[in-house]
Design a protein around this nucleic acid. Structure first.
Lengths: 254, 254
DNA sequence: ATTTTATTGTCTCAATTTGATACAATAATA
DNA sequence: TATTATTGTATCAAATTGAGACAATAAAAT
């Protein structure tokens, strides 16, 4: 088994019971009370999707998340986590909100996960402690992703945004907040392009906008606005053998 | 001395050395590794100001901040802190960013503060540990504030935004980020009105905008835009004995 | 009492942006 | 060669914005 400490199960496996700091068997330690969760957006088949993990034998779904190394930048920890899950570096990533309510502390839920994996759920296990979670959203090129299934048998899959299951703790709320933030920031630097391959047609970009905003946009006005932004470079035409005019491919200016 | 645990000095005083959780002599405990800092904006004399604390005998300036009780919501902790400093409840408050870089961990600075106050700065003192800080910005009615000077002799004063001294750690960066966020959000629900008394003239509101954006705005177009928002109620005229037409007073719709 | 001063509130008009539609161009197919 | 399903651009009215004109007015100056 390869070491993958982004995964909470691996982490459970390795964590020794220690008050502070939390330490795994490789001697690596993490900040207590601090966690992060990522809402990873992808775009495929005209739909917006996010990554959701399923914890085995528990029926529990959750966002991919993790913990911060004692000597690790918070943002770096999140990137490390995303790398583990998707294989991608250089992901577009933004903070979104910090969830810090007491009611999100539900040791019973964590205990269920721990037990379902045959681990000792001592009452003093540090993972049963309260955590503040820093939520991020990430925009990735769906087609480049290689989801890495986990050694401890939980899965990590794409779910259509409109078909996300009930997630543990406040994770559905986190998804909501991430989507809100994404919508608010959408026009900054044509954010949506992060969800597409290097080159894309205007129609694809429009579909990304429509998926995120959950509303139709006017085609020609959208095109006018995108071109006027000066952030798109027009490259060659894309011939797909369809019986109509071939669209241009565009790419984001570097 | 009254107990004021928003203040880091008071906290230093009361904190016993304990790994986790940190506990003061009243038996109250706080989350380790988690802190918050507030950029408190006020408006007076046509200028935007923020609250800055000065740590005595150290030459160190800092933003007001604090820690989160074990059974306390993060947002509630920040409000508690603001109440202590300003005497105000119901403050407009927003999260702004989480600062989580390793390089912000500078135990030498904290040690200096601790020593300057005649406290034991044991190497294992929990305050010398690394903290993630959740930054907030607050908008308050300057005239309503009663700054509460602290029993442990640090001060808390207003500084013009363009004359903020060098602050400890990354606090100047936090101010920058808060200002950016404020600018981005300024138009939502006439945010600026939170910096003014219940009733205000259009000119005052304009000055708030100009102070925040650091640029002049066109008077009549500004007025048109504000009135068109439908969020302002016009009340009586304000007679200040000046040799010109008296302006109307407005207030934000509730 | 009348004029002056400094500001306020409203109006106007051109410039720009936006919304909606028309229409020509064009790959591949029939 | 005509047809089909787009795509890219142009057009025009409607709405918004930028800049300035101007009348109203509260108090001071004359």
């Amino acid at each position: 088994m390869t070491f993958n400490f982004f995964n909470i199960f691996t982490f459970l496996h390795m964590a020794k019971q220690k008050d502070n700091p939390a330490e795994n068997k490789k001697g690596e330690s993490y900040l207590t009370h601090v966690a992060f969760d990522s809402v990873v957006f992808g775009f495929s088949g005209e739909k917006l999707k996010i990554l959701v993990m399923e914890y085995h034998n528990t029926g529990l779904f959750a966002l991919p998340g993790g913990f911060v190394g004692l000597k690790e930048n918070l943002n770096a920890a999140v990137r490390r986590g995303l790398k583990e899950r998707t294989g991608l570096s250089n992901i577009y990533l933004e903070q979104c909100y910090v969830f810090g309510d007491v009611k999100r502390h539900q040791p019973a839920v964590l205990r269920k996960i721990i037990k379902a994996n045959g681990l000792a759920a001592d009452d003093k296990h540090w993972l049963l402690d309260r955590f503040i979670s820093v939520a991020y959203y990430a925009l990735i090129n769906y087609s480049k992703v290689k989801l890495q299934p986990d050694t401890l048998s939980d899965s990590c899959e794409w779910y259509d945004l409109d078909a996300v299951p009930k997630l543990m703790l406040d994770h559905n709320l986190i998804v909501q907040k991430a989507l809100e933030t994404l919508r608010k920031n959408l026009d900054e630097k044509l954010l949506g392009t992060n969800l597409l391959p290097l080159q894309f047609t205007m129609k694809q970009l429009q579909q990304v906008y429509e998926a995120i905003l959950d509303e139709k946009v006017h085609r020609t006005n959208f095109q006018r606005r995108m071109l006027a932004s000066g952030l798109l470079i027009r490259t060659e035409k894309q011939f797909l053998g369809k019986a109509h005019k071939a669209p241009y491919l565009y790419q984001f200016v570097k």
